[in-house]
Structures are given as structure tokens and as C-alpha cells.
Nucleic acid binder design. Structure first.
Length: 281
DNA sequence: CCACTCCTGCGT
DNA sequence: ACGCAGGAGTGG
């Protein structure tokens, strides 16, 4: 479920409590997540301190040292939640990983990874090489775009015949964008998601890249989008669902022109658009 | 480009 | 019962 902005909200709550905290008693369920991991695979984290909690796109990690030689990657997939619970909270169904957490001030928490569909994962990395290999798969993060990054994404868009929405979903081009924000960015740029990247002129491509950045930053500012059950590590909902232009608004009036928003299936996933604001290519 | 896969849960 | 779901990979 979560895209970059939702992962960022989770990261912030985790970071505020877990930075400097000591981990102990890792436990992993028997059910297979995306990458099979067992309790023994997390044993190296027992007794270690969390140095930082960081994110790139939808990839989140807890680093155990200052240079990411060791740590835990967390990918939430479609239904994953990374929660900080009280140790005596009821263990809910589909809890797959638990780690005791004691903060520098001596507060006791429990990190829990809950994921009904099991498309996500908690996986260790034990070398800088391994860490770098994961990050290298990801293009620039729109929540931290530099001038070079914007130029990179513009160039990627213009150099492919793929539909622009599909390009935005490609984590190698720009990471953290998922189905919500890809539709939203196309609307903000007033471009149909079906435009071929190569059909965009410089102004349009730049407008789209700026729209991605704007939409992703707004969503972070709103604590992410919660349309059903997404919550941050404290169980709190986001507010960006009240700011969506088109996503999940089929048959509702476009906030800009009143035309009814349409839902199309693109690349076997839903795409939402305003046919008037975003005319066919 | 498409279809299909991994899964469970929810709304119609 | 069926279709749909915020991800990501594979294979055709």
C-alpha cells in the first residue's frame, strides 16, 4: 500500500524512537515473506544499537553503524506495516517480525512487522556492498531531487516510447512513486498518463518532473495518504486523501473543471484521469 | 507492451 | 463468488 510519502511518515516515527535504541530478541515467523528470512538471520542484530533510520523511495532501513555496513531493510510491499508497539500489546494476526527495543532513556518498545499479503519483507544486510547493491537499483527520490536528478528524469522520460505513467512507476527512473502519485502527478502536469515519454517536449517533461516533486512533497507534508488502512508506526493515519485530484475519484467531479473523473486500466492497474484537463495524446 | 505470480481481505 | 487493492518481479 505505501508509497514514498507513507514510508517517510513511518520512517519519521521509527527514527524518533529507535535512533540510539538497543535491539534484542529478534523473532521471525515461519511464513515466507518476499525474501525468506528466519530468526537466526536476524541474530546479528541482538544487542546492537540503531544508528539511524533512513529511506530511499519505498525502501526503508535501520542502520546499525554510521556507514551502512550492517542493518535491516524493510520493504512494506502492498500491505506491510512497521509498527512500534508496547511490549504487552496484543500480537495481531500476520505479525511476522518482532524486535525488542529499549531507548537510550530506558523506554521499552517492540518493533513489529505486520503484513497480511506478505509481499513485503524485513531483510538483513551485512556488508556495505550488499547495501549499495540495493540502493543502486533505485533512481533519484523526488523528496530529495537535485538539479541533476530532475535533468536525469526528464531525459529518461523523453528517451522512451513507454507511457509516462508507466515510466513514473519505474523505480529505476525515480523511486517512491506508486500508483496514487503517478496518477496525481500526471494530473498536476495536465498530461494524459497515456502520453509516450518521447512525445513530451522539454516544457512538458519538465512540468511532469516538477509535478512529481510537488505531489510527493505535499503528500509527505500531509503525513501520507490513508484511504483504507495505511497508518504510520504509531498507528496514525495520514491526511493526503483529502487532497487527491483524481486518484480513487472515479465519477466524481474534477476539482479543476467539474468533468467526471475516469478510471482506466493501464498496465493492468487502475489509472485515474480527468479527460478534459488531461486530453488524449 | 501484456499477462501472470506471490498473498489476504474487503466491498459489492 | 468475484473483482479489486498503495508493489515488484518474471517470462512471453
Amino acid at each position: 500500500m505505501p508509497e514514498g510519502p507513507e514510508v517517510e511518515s513511518v520512517r519519521r516515527t521509527l527514527s524518533s524512537r529507535m535512533t540510539g535504541a538497543t535491539l534484542s530478541s529478534p523473532w521471525v515467523s515461519d511464513l515466507k515473506l518476499r525474501t525468506p528470512v528466519d530468526t537466526a538471520d536476524l541474530a546479528f542484530a541482538d544487542g546492537r544499537q540503531v544508528h539511524h533510520v533512513r529511506r530511499k523511495g519505498k525502501l526503508l532501513w535501520m542502520g546499525l553503524d554510521d556507514a551502512d555496513h550492517e542493518g535491516l531493510f524493510v520493504r512494506l510491499g502492498m500491505s506491510g506495516r512497521a509498527l512500534l508497539c508496547r511490549p504487552d500489546d496484543v500480537i495481531e494476526k500476520h505479525t511476522h517480525v518482532m524486535l525488542d527495543v529499549v531507548t537510550a532513556q530506558g523506554e521499552r518498545w517492540q518493533f513489529r512487522y505486520v503484513d497480511p499479503r506478505r509481499f513485503g519483507e524485513v531483510v538483513p544486510y551485512t556488508s556495505r556492498r550488499q547495501f549499495d547493491a540495493e540502493c543502486a537499483k533505485l533512481g533519484p527520490d523526488p523528496n530529495a531531487f537535485t538539479d541533476d536528478d530532475r535533468a536525469f528524469v526528464v531525459a529518461k522520460l523523453q528517451s522512451t516510447s513507454r507511457a509516462i505513467k508507466d515510466v513514473l512507476l519505474d523505480q529505476r527512473v525515480t523511486c517512491g512513486v506508486g500508483n496514487i502519485y503517478a496518477s496525481e502527478a500526471c494530473f498536476v502536469a495536465r498530461l494524459s498518463p497515456y502520453w509516450a515519454g518521447s512525445a513530451l517536449d522539454d516544457v512538458q517533461a519538465r512540468r511532469l518532473v516538477d509535478a512529481v516533486e510537488e505531489v510527493m512533497n505535499d503528500a509527505v507534508a500531509h503525513g501520507g495518504t490513508s484511504f483504507s488502512d495505511y497508518v504510520d508506526a504509531d498507528g496514525k493515519r495520514g491526511a493526503h486523501q483529502d487532497h487527491l485530484w483524481v486518484f480513487l475519484r472515479e465519477d466524481e467531479p474534477c476539482r479543476e473543471c467539474g468533468t467526471l473523473v475516469e478510471r482506466w486500466v493501464q498496465g493492468s492497474r487502475s489509472t485515474f484521469l480527468c479527460p478534459r484537463c488531461q486530453p488524449d495524446p
